[in-house]
């Protein structure tokens, strides 16, 4: 069961520039602490980029869901 309510959803499918990671950073800057962001990306590189950045920036990758042709990343803003 999911236990989060998405405050901001960003559809970055097919986005190359600035690209999914930049879209996530933008959303994190807009979000309040404790809110969840959903990032939709069809880019394989995002699978490496998002966990690495979330770890470095000390937020939380709450879930990574594979959907039809894209991934849905659920990220919680922690600070």
């Amino acid at each position: 069961m999911t236990d989060y309510e998405i405050a901001i959803e960003v559809d970055a499918r097919g986005a190359f520039c600035p690209g999914p990671m930049m879209e996530l950073i933008k959303a994190i800057r807009q979000a309040e602490v404790g809110e969840f962001i959903a990032l939709l990306s069809s880019d394989e590189g995002t699978r490496v980029d998002v966990p690495a950045w979330v770890d470095k920036a000390k937020h939380e990758l709450t879930a990574l869901i594979n959907e039809d042709g894209f991934d849905r990343y659920i990220v919680k803003k922690l600070h």
């Binding site: 190359f16 520039c17 690209g19 990671m21 590189g45 690495a52 950045w53």
Partner: peptide
Amino acid sequence: YPLSRAFTMA
């Protein structure tokens, strides 16, 4: 730069 690389695209 905000990303792990120096530009948006790999």
